[in-house]
Design a protein around this nucleic acid. Structure first.
Length: 502
DNA sequence: CGACTTTGACCTGCGC
DNA sequence: GCGCAGGTCAAAGTCG
């Protein structure tokens, strides 16, 4: 227990350092944005831009190219500016999994308190107004209601998962199921039952094109302590939400008002205005009845065929509808031959990956599959030739969007370790997990780590992220063989990582 | 017996 | 106003 406390203390300090660094840098970034955003907005809002043939969907999949491992080794002690450059030149954050692939769809957040790392427990009841409430709120003209109603978040997880649901550490109760239009697979609705009044809900649906992909969409913010196993997922959610919120802090959209005059975050040259409802809708819920969801997508999903990656599909679908620009970031996985196994089998790996830039303008630096044969040689060649383009794009994305950085920062925070939840009994297995070491096959995880209904797909990644000891997490971040190569350097502390991120 | 799932009905928002 | 689709409710059924 003493050791655990010590580890927790260290973890907290590391986290605080990261947050501190991030916040200070974010403030600086916002200052810069305030100065430059109007210009960028003017440029990017020209008709030619709006009518560009490229879909307003930016998909960034992060992965380290296998061709650049030496750089990582080389930059073991860089200065900060050097780190930045290297960060730009080889930004990668690959979450590798053979069977577990993630994408995060952020729509917005119900509460300003979106950090699961620092849950303030003030959102019980203030979040997630039901549709009736929303409707009422919509009738109001005051800015407060507008701001409130906009702050809802959806985080969609795309997982290659055989089981009906994915184990995210929380406990869920199914309350409905509907056939969604355009998808032969029914959509199931779950609500969190960890706390009786928890407003968090999730939708689970199979991808129509690839039945092995499970799309889990989370909405709302937990108003209760989270199981350790759930904190990593929650961190990702909160990071996504904070991405929205940090961006929203830069624009103050009145109803249909300031879109043309308000500074908006620009990601990769494209508008990203989370509050511009007319332009932002959830990727996977394009017909959502609630149009109040600005969208940023963190896509960690890849698929065996680059031509059938969700983003490609999404890009295609959205290409025809420029009303729905979206920013997406893919933390993709990579070839499994770099590390023998990945999340799904219990080996966390952060492999670098080739990427492809799709014809729709989506940049996918994704896992190019465990079945390389799916990929055409043409695409491979294109990947190789596009490496520089990728690097450029990533650098731009990082440089231009503080929210993006926040997502990565929070993601790393979640990797460093989920905050233990006192008295938590949900999502079980944390004690066991804490004794586990990276590299252990997932089969070693106690069955307790699965959800009660036993249907959970092993989101071992999250569980392990959340439950790993700081040491192991630190190793994960620091060890060169685990290419969480947000930088080519070998940082000596997570705060160093935070510096690079920020 | 309690918790959970299933499933048809109902509610709501949106487009035409 | 009507129809459609997404989302939710709640009674009945199932399971451990």
């Amino acid at each position: 227990m003493g050791e655990v406390k010590e580890e927790n203390e260290r973890l907290k300090m590391m986290l605080q350092q990261i947050e501190k660094d991030y916040q200070s840098l974010q403030l600086r970034f916002f200052d810069i944005i305030k100065q430059e955003a109007p210009k960028k907005f003017t440029e990017s809002s020209t008709p030619s831009h709006l009518e560009t043939e490229e879909p307003e969907l930016v998909s960034l999949c992060l992965g380290r190219s296998p061709s650049e491992p030496k750089k990582e080794e080389k930059a073991s002690n860089p200065s900060k500016s050097t780190k930045d450059e290297e960060w730009k030149s080889s930004l990668t954050l690959g979450w590798d999994s053979n069977k577990f692939q993630l994408s995060t769809e952020i729509v917005s957040d119900p509460s300003p308190e979106t950090s699961f790392e620092e849950p303030k427990q003030v959102d019980a009841g203030e979040t997630w107004p039901p549709s009736k409430t929303l409707k009422t709120m919509r009738n109001g003209d005051d800015e407060v209601s507008q701001q409130t109603r906009v702050k809802r978040a959806r985080v969609s997880i795309r997982a290659r998962c055989e089981t009906p649901t994915m184990n995210d550490g929380c406990q869920w109760r199914k309350y409905g199921q509907k056939m969604a239009k355009g998808n032969p697979c029914p959509r199931a609705y779950y609500r969190c039952t960890v706390a009786p009044d928890c407003p968090v809900r999730k939708q689970v649906q199979r991808c129509a094109e690839d039945m092995t992909i499970l799309i889990t969409t989370y909405e709302g913010t937990h108003n209760h302590p989270l199981p350790v196993a759930a904190t990593a997922m929650a961190s990702t959610t909160s990071a996504a939400a904070s991405m929205i919120l940090s961006s929203s802090s830069m624009s103050k959209p009145g109803l249909g008002s300031t879109a043309s005059t308000t500074a908006v975050p620009v990601l990769n040259g494209l508008h990203f205005n989370p509050l511009d409802n007319s332009r932002a809708k959830p990727f996977y819920l394009p017909n959502s009845s609630n149009p109040l969801f600005p969208t940023v997508t963190l896509d960690l999903t890849t698929s065996p065929s680059s031509s059938s990656t969700p983003f490609n599909r999404l890009s295609s679908s959205f290409a025809s509808n420029p009303r729905f620009p979206s920013s997406s970031v893919s933390f993709s996985s990579s070839q499994s031959n770099i590390l023998p196994t990945a999340w799904g089998t219990g080996y966390p790996s952060f492999n670098s990956v080739p990427y492809n830039k799709t014809h729709t303008g989506t940049i996918n630096i994704g896992k190019q599959s465990q079945e390389p044969s799916y990929q055409s040689s043409m695409e491979k060649n294109h990947q190789a030739s596009s490496q520089e383009y990728l690097t450029d794009s990533l650098a731009k994305a990082i440089a231009s969007d503080a929210s993006f950085r926040s997502v990565i920062a929070a993601t790393i925070s979640s990797m460093v370790g989920g905050r233990a939840t006192p008295g938590s009994t949900q999502g079980g297995g944390e004690r066991l997990d804490q004794n586990m070491k990276w590299g252990e096959p997932i089969q070693a995880v106690s069955p307790d780590s699965l959800t009660k209904n036993g249907k959970a797909c092993a989101s071992s990644y999250f569980n392990r992220m959340a439950s790993s000891t700081p040491q192991t997490a630190g190793l994960m971040l620091l060890q060169p063989p685990l290419p969480l190569s947000i930088s080519k350097s070998t940082p000596t502390s997570t705060s160093a990582i935070g510096d690079q991120i920020n």
